[in-house]
Amino acid sequence: MKKMLLLLSAALGWTLLPVLAFAGGASELVVVADTRVLTGMAKYFANLYNTNIVLFALWATVLTALYGCFLGFLMDFIMSRSGLDLTSRKIVEH
């Protein structure tokens, strides 16, 4: 778990440098999310998308990582109930 956290933060920190360079260049595609028809969470994120893309990108990355972690550990829990041996393998082949 600790390893995972460390890795996560390392990955986050690492994204910084090239990204700042990227941020300057304008992309040819401009999309405005239609916040008029949204409510709640979706509205918040669509709004961020329109106004503060850096924070939006940060959220997107962090949430993806968190959800991935969550699903990974949840599935691990479920799989451990199946009675399969999930820590070793018999077939030894290169």
Binding site: T15, F22, Y49, I53
Partner: peptide, 14 residues
């Protein structure tokens, strides 16, 4: 790791 990086940069581009 490279996927997270890619996700970040492409999110930056919307």
């Amino acid at each position: 790791i490279s996927g997270l990086y890619g996700a970040f940069t492409y999110s930056m581009k919307g």
